[in-house]
Computed example of a mutant assay.
Amino acid sequence: MGIKTVVVGLGMGKVHAREIRATPGLELYGVCDTRPHRRDEGRGEFGGHVYERLEDVIADENVQLVVLAVPHHLHTEMALATMAAKKHTVLEKPFCMTPEEGERMIAARDEHGVMLSIHHQRRWDADFYHLREWLAQNPIGPLFHMQLSWHAWGPMHDWRATRAAGGGIWYDLGAHLVDQANLLARSRPKRVFAVQNHAMWHQEVETFCRATITYENGMSVVIFTATNAATEMPRWYILGERGAIRKERFGEAGEFEFIQCHGEERHRATLPIELVGPGYYANISAHLNRGEPLEVTAEQALEVIRVLDAANRSAASGDAIDLIEQPDAPRRTRRARSDV
């Protein structure tokens, strides 16, 4: 049949379960949730085995892969338990709450010899997927600046509105944008400076974040996430030494504005966006069944967490946060400067 997979958490987990069920090489063996009504929903839609507790999933020797679609603050301890039971593990993004938690999970993965991956499925969004392909051909020369945004209008709800659970739009959706920026920058993040506010909805989690990331290769990236944006910012704004690429609206549909420069002349064109095929779970299946390379590694997801965490610390302190220690700069924070 395939790799016997159980999805834990039937909020966002329903999305995972549907994709797993449609992926060759994976078998949706069961679902798990502590809430009776969610278990009833899972039994009705997916059938198979239905578990009340993670301990019941771990105890089932038939289970090979566990998907943890649970609130962010629960990721680490639950993943440590599944990996200790020799279960391959997929976590919803973001990976964890702190870099230290990510390091613990990577160490457990290595100790127990299992797969650990994080659901950065936005790598397969059609706009990013094609953008990454185009930029690999160097159509606008070396990149030096990018701006990415993901914004909405309306407060966060349920546990996503609480700081202790890892809520807030920066960790929830900023994780995707940082992951995409890291892949396009092709360099390690070096420094982060961020500003956050709670305007409009006045929740304990931020309603706006602007983070500036400087990479080792000199690239600068500005990322906006907001739940209080009454109008839209460009989804993509990318500058290279021989042109630019821009996309106005969020979503997989639409087109890119593509500008190539020859001296002082600029030539404009549009690049249509076509939908892509199999996504994240197709790669999980290929990795576990055929040994193909894992597309989303825990190490990559840890780099995302380092940036997310640094941005929160920067916003709280007003300082830029150095992610890579310099021999003559033992402190991890320094006052913001114009080159950040």
Rank of each mutant, 00 (worst) to 15 (best):
I3H: 02
T5G: 04
G9D: 08
G13E: 15
K14I: 15
R18L: 07
I20A: 00
V31I: 07
H37Y: 11
R39I: 01
D40E: 14
G44N: 15
E45T: 12
F46H: 00
G47M: 11
G48L: 06
E55F: 01
D56H: 13
D56S: 14
A59P: 00
V63M: 11
V63P: 05
L65F: 03
V66L: 03
V67F: 05
H72W: 03
H72D: 02
T76E: 10
T76S: 05
K86Q: 08
T89C: 00
E92M: 12
P99I: 02
E111Q: 13
G113I: 00
V114A: 01
M115I: 03
I118C: 06
H120R: 00
R123V: 09
D125M: 05
D125V: 04
F128P: 01
F128W: 10
R132N: 11
P139M: 04
I140W: 01
G141M: 04
L143R: 02
F144L: 04
M146P: 02
Q147H: 06
W150N: 11
D158S: 13
R160K: 15
A165F: 10
G167L: 03
D172F: 10
D172Q: 14
G174T: 04
D179P: 03
N182D: 07
L184N: 01
R186K: 11
V195K: 09
Q196R: 12
Q196W: 12
N197R: 15
W201H: 15
Q203Y: 13
G218F: 13
G218I: 08
M219I: 09
F224C: 07
N228F: 11
P234L: 13
I238S: 03
G240A: 07
R249I: 12
F250W: 11
G254Q: 13
E255Q: 10
G263R: 01
E264Q: 00
H267A: 07
H267S: 07
R268F: 10
R268S: 08
T270G: 09
T270L: 05
V276T: 13
G279A: 06
Y280N: 06
Y281G: 02
A282H: 09
A286Y: 04
A298H: 02
Q300W: 12
A310F: 13
R313C: 07
A315Q: 13
I321Q: 14
D322N: 09
P327G: 08
P327L: 13
R332T: 14
